[in-house]
Design a protein around this nucleic acid. Structure first.
Length: 267
DNA sequence: ACCCAGGGTAACT
DNA sequence: AGTTACCATGGG
């Protein structure tokens, strides 16, 4: 069946290619990607979103993945109390936070550091081809268990550079049980972050990305170079009160805003 | 040839 | 506690 719905705040380009996920492609207006063990085919035509060729029992999965229970219109109204956020939200009103798997988020954002989206995607694709289960529609993201014991040398074909040893370190801590990803759901933000930062190659920003995109901890605010510039330029005395509890979502709107407002013109 | 890419670590003050 | 070189790789 096809699952079809309308939503005022749902722009596939903004959601799938804003740097929160790395396995989606677009061809002639059709969006594709692999999420967990499911294949996504999505279109938006005349304002109507359609998820193609799924079973009815998969609808709750996709509703959850696309965070359909969250009222983004209401969030934008909240954020609009701030002048800059108001403009930022206007430009990118179709952004949503994807509720991704913690493991995929962890590995993906380790790879993302000091890297660009195109190359991040390539490295992740090679990782999936090497260690992920092969389906007729492509390779799944590897399971945690499949990557236990992996070494930086074995990961060399990924051409992930210095990040390979960080993946190896993460896998060793997961395998030993020093860090249990499923336990982190129940931890408060500070403790969760502390756990993730035990991993070599996971610092402030990567930890916040994993917490936001992998655990939906919306108070996690990934401070990338652009957000740092926004804070320095527009919020020298601190971020506005209206984003409290939803700093990470506000960050998504501000990221693009920063590149337009502060960018050097070629970004 | 040079610079940067949605950072982090180790080694310095 | 705050700064800085270095880290691999690929694209502009």
């Amino acid at each position: 069946m096809d699952y079809s719905f309308t939503c005022d705040n749902f722009e596939p380009d903004q959601i799938l290619f804003c740097g929160q996920a790395f396995r989606f492609r677009e061809e002639e207006g059709v969006y594709h990607g692999i999420v967990g063990d499911r294949y996504l085919t999505l279109t938006k035509e005349q304002g109507r979103i359609t998820i193609h060729d799924i079973e009815e029992e998969d609808i709750p999965f996709w509703n959850n993945y696309f965070d359909m229970d969250t009222d983004y219109k209401a969030l934008i109204e909240r954020f609009s109390a701030d002048k800059h956020l108001k403009e930022a939200c206007k430009e990118k009103s179709g952004i949503r936070i994807l509720r991704q798997s913690p493991f995929e988020a962890l590995i993906s954002f380790i790879i993302s550091q000091n890297n660009n989206i195109k190359r991040i995607s390539g490295i992740i694709e090679r990782l999936c081809e090497m260690y992920g289960e092969k389906k007729d529609f492509g390779y799944l993201f590897p399971t945690e268990e499949r990557l236990y014991g992996v070494t930086a040398e074995e990961l060399a074909p990924l051409r992930a550079g210095f990040r390979a040893k960080y993946i190896a370190d993460a896998m060793s801590r997961l395998q030993s049980g020093e860090i249990v990803l499923s336990d982190i759901y129940d931890m408060d933000y500070e403790r969760a972050k502390e756990q993730l930062k035990k991993i070599k190659g996971v610092g402030e920003k990567v930890a916040d990305c994993v917490l936001l995109f992998g655990y939906y901890k919306t108070e996690a605010l990934p401070k990338d170079v652009w957000i740092k510039r926004v804070i320095a330029e527009f919020y020298p005395d601190g971020l506005p009160e209206c984003i409290k509890g939803y700093e990470g979502i506000a960050q998504q709107y501000l990221f693009d805003y920063a590149r337009r407002k502060i960018g050097d013109g070629n970004g």
